[in-house]
Design a protein around this nucleic acid. Structure first.
Lengths: 239, 239
DNA sequence: AACTACAGCGTACGAGATACAGAGTCCCCG
DNA sequence: CGGGGACTCTGTATCTCGTACGCTGTAGTT
């Protein structure tokens, strides 16, 4: 399957030429997901869109799951260019761009956790992050760790932002913003079992506005991470 | 649905007494998930296990999705006790415990991203993290942010560890350990498009052992985060 | 004792993934 | 230049699930 994703297929010589390409199948599936969400992506819907029968797709992908994994890679944009920036600047951008494309295609959130990156696009993201850290003297293993942590952060923030901002159609009982979330909690919490949460809500740490999931909060956590990395660099880049 | 999860149901007066309890339904579903994975959890299998018909369950839950959300909350253990520890010690434990229970029940990984925590257990986790930060002077909003970041980190690490260590049955094309992951990448990468990754693999940053996803790596990233928080505390707890 | 809200369930439908096998197509070899 | 076999596409069928609907029986209430 990895082989297929990278276009390393044994091209056969006998028989009719394939009438489709893997790429267009994946593209169509992505377009459907953009329009109707992941639920709209069925072997049938993709095939219809391409003008073939559902079963034909199985000549190109081994299973629906495989198709989904390929979508997850192909739907990612190219990572931002390094352009000689300092590692911190670049990684900041990198992480935000990562979050942004997840937010632009929320269905990616459901696909991500499936596999470590094995597709061309996502590996390019990884590669660029490593490149940004090249001058820091941090060991390779640690660099990979850092990239992993940052992309995890991006995914988490995207998931959170999506869950809270989801339009009424996103989930049946979706939460229409942070204010409502705080409200729900307020109805249910009792101060004995949840003293701190109750205080937090009382202090309207939640519910003041829809701003919680603003860039301010994203930046806050990301700076936490980058500060940690900076400390590591300063410490002399042990492993 | 939130109301149901918290046991705030209007108890009726007419008719036969219900023969089941929400709690036992959720418990049985969890036990099935532990044994056979999420895929084994169907309305039918749960009902059979309870000795009732599938449709009976709909007297207690609105839909299968609702059941899954409840499972996600009920399957979490209680958070570790604070016991007057310093915030950093406690949050370290908290995050590791969080990862550990996700790893013990990998199917939770698929359920988590669905909703911000609304169940009793997960809110207790949140509450304890906030409590640990109570003495630091950090604002409520920032505390919530920190807890979110840490639990996100736990989830991400758990997902990664699971993906890499998954037994052969976990996914059809699961990756049996980090070594194989590096191997796959090596077959596919070319040095021009992925210079840094190629170097990293060359330096055997991957593939040396199964240790990548060891506690050492978990600790590494977590310390990054905690260092960042510490810097924030030292800076005088702005925000 | 009758009424009625409510529990449990049998049936049925519809969606969706995918196994299987037939029929057409086209390259390659002789 | 013709035959053969590999390979493509597709129709059909099956199996698994979630869940809508409506019936039947039960047990408080009146």
């Amino acid at each position: 399957m990895v082989a297929r994703m990278w276009g390393r297929e044994t091209s056969s010589r006998h028989g009719p030429r394939p009438s489709l390409e893997l790429g267009s199948i994946v593209d169509v599936a992505i377009r459907i997901a953009d329009r109707e969400g992941l639920a709209g992506v069925t072997m049938g819907s993709v095939a219809t869109q391409l003008g073939v029968a559902a079963m034909s797709l199985y000549r190109y992908v081994g299973s629906k799951d495989e198709l989904l994994v390929m979508m997850a890679d192909a739907a990612a944009p190219e990572p931002p260019a390094l352009d000689g920036r300092a590692w911190r600047d670049y990684l900041f951008d990198w992480t935000r761009a990562n979050r942004d494309f997840l937010l632009a295609r929320p269905w990616l959130l459901a696909l991500d956790q499936r596999t470590p990156p094995t597709g061309p696009r996502l590996l390019r993201w990884l590669d660029r992050a490593l490149a940004a850290l090249a001058g820091t003297g941090i060991a390779y293993g640690a660099r990979i760790n850092i990239a992993t942590v940052l992309s995890g952060y991006a995914a988490q923030q995207a998931a959170l932002a999506h869950a809270l901002s989801a339009g009424p159609a996103a989930t049946d009982d979706s939460i229409a913003g942070l204010a409502e979330y705080g409200e729900i909690l307020g109805q249910v919490l009792d101060a004995d079992a949840y003293p701190e949460l109750t205080s937090a809500i009382g202090a309207s740490a939640l519910g003041v506005a829809e701003e919680w999931i603003d860039d301010a909060d994203f930046t806050f956590g990301l700076d936490l991470l980058l500060d940690g990395i900076e400390a590591l660099v300063a410490r002399g880049a042990h492993d």
